[in-house]
Amino acid sequence: MNKKITKQIKELVIARLEIMPNNMKVSIGSYGAFSKDDLKRHVEDEDEIGKKVVEVQMAFLRAIKEGKLYPQE
């Protein structure tokens, strides 16, 4: 994902990350495990990890829009 992240998308993703419990970390591939604050920082910085986080969150929102949140198979 090489496109610059728009301000609107950044704010949306950070708002979604904000609701993560404080004790939760996310292991993202080879990058490591990140807390809520780590992930927010990466999204702000628009680095590789931040772009991956945005990709996952946008895929999720698309799934809701397309009615694919509860896959049947």
Binding site: P21, V56, Q57, A59, F60, L69, Y70, P71
Partner: peptide, 21 residues
Amino acid sequence: IMVAESSGNRTILSWLLWDYY
């Protein structure tokens, strides 16, 4: 996915759905 949804933790849902697909 259903457990995460019923617990109200929608951020977990996003990572789970990613892995599912």
